[in-house]
Amino acid sequence: MRIPRIYHAEPLVVGSEVFLNEEAANHVGRVLRMNAGQRLELFDGTNLTFSAEIVQADKKNVRVAVQESREECRESPLHLHLGQVMSRGEKMEFTIQKAVELGVNSITPLFSERCGVKLDAQRLAKKIQQWQKIVIAACEQCGRNRVPEVREAMTLEAWSAEEDSSLKLNLHPRASQSINTLQQPVERVRLLIGPEGGLTADEIAMTARYGFTDILLGPRVLRTETTALTAITALQVRFGDLG
């Protein structure tokens, strides 16, 4: 069996013993049914991975001994901040999961005029927590040791107005530039992905005022979740660590 990778939010120290958090303990002890003596790989959000051995395991608590560490940087040289107008149901979860696998560093859920998601403050807070758990699970699966942040949701204009030295890109079906025509080198990108119905003309004009460049992916109209992943992949191929 492949050695499970588990995220531990507190800093890890070689030679110490730690209890896994409730969710990780449930996964290791109840779902995987692992026992004392079996091995885990832990990571704590740094570029270090830690070999560990289970000391105690039951249905509620798992205690592990941290035995050794090694440095493993799996981050892309391209820093990507995804601004994603929220989509309905599982589409947003899918986008977040796959964006993390492709190397995105941070994600901001956005509200726009055509955003189909309507949530009160309490439900939105729960969604943010749920999306952050999806990020952690994606890191455990794909081997990333640094955990991207899902930021608090905000309006499209507030996000567009944030001061940022990154190259700002907005996907637009009638743009004249493509990712391949962008001038190198590019180290930081703020990528805007609109809702299922697209951005309004006023919103596109607003993003231009804040320094966003419209780019075109290709001749076909893509769904919002397809657009995000296609754009991230193309950026990683040109400026990052794919291909």
Rank of each mutant, 00 (worst) to 15 (best):
44 D>Y: 00
166 S>R: 10
71 E>W: 11
34 M>G: 03
71 E>Y: 08
64 V>L: 00
212 F>A: 02
79 H>S: 14
103 G>N: 05
78 L>R: 03
144 R>D: 07
115 C>A: 02
193 I>W: 01
104 V>W: 10
84 Q>E: 06
209 R>D: 15
184 Q>G: 07
212 F>M: 08
83 G>M: 12
198 G>N: 03
225 E>P: 09
121 A>M: 07
97 Q>C: 11
226 T>Q: 07
36 A>L: 01
103 G>M: 11
8 H>K: 09
178 S>W: 00
84 Q>R: 09
88 R>W: 12
121 A>N: 06
78 L>I: 03
49 T>A: 14
155 T>K: 12
1 M>A: 15
209 R>W: 11
194 G>S: 10
14 V>W: 10
234 A>N: 04
114 R>H: 15
129 Q>K: 15
25 A>E: 08
141 Q>M: 08
80 L>G: 09
139 C>Q: 07
209 R>K: 12
97 Q>A: 14
182 L>V: 08
153 A>T: 02
64 V>K: 01
3 I>M: 02
24 A>S: 14
208 A>I: 07
200 T>R: 05
42 L>S: 03
168 K>W: 04
164 D>W: 04
49 T>D: 13
163 E>L: 08
237 V>F: 11
77 P>N: 08
220 R>M: 14
11 P>I: 05
82 L>K: 00
103 G>P: 01
241 D>K: 09
155 T>M: 07
94 F>R: 13
99 A>E: 05
117 V>L: 11
58 D>T: 00
144 R>T: 11
5 R>Q: 00
165 S>D: 15
149 E>M: 12
207 T>R: 07
76 S>Y: 02
222 L>G: 04
192 L>N: 08
46 T>Q: 04
116 G>E: 14
175 A>L: 03
117 V>Q: 04
65 A>N: 11
241 D>W: 03
133 K>R: 14
79 H>F: 15
26 N>E: 06
241 D>T: 09
216 L>C: 12
94 F>H: 15
231 A>K: 01
100 V>P: 06
174 R>C: 09
169 L>P: 02
161 A>E: 11
188 R>P: 10
111 F>D: 02
85 V>N: 01
172 H>I: 02
238 R>S: 06
205 A>Q: 14
33 R>L: 10
79 H>K: 14
159 W>R: 08
68 E>D: 14
159 W>Q: 05
10 E>W: 01
90 E>C: 02
166 S>D: 04
108 T>N: 00
41 E>W: 02
243 G>T: 11
156 L>P: 03
243 G>W: 15
6 I>K: 00
60 K>I: 04
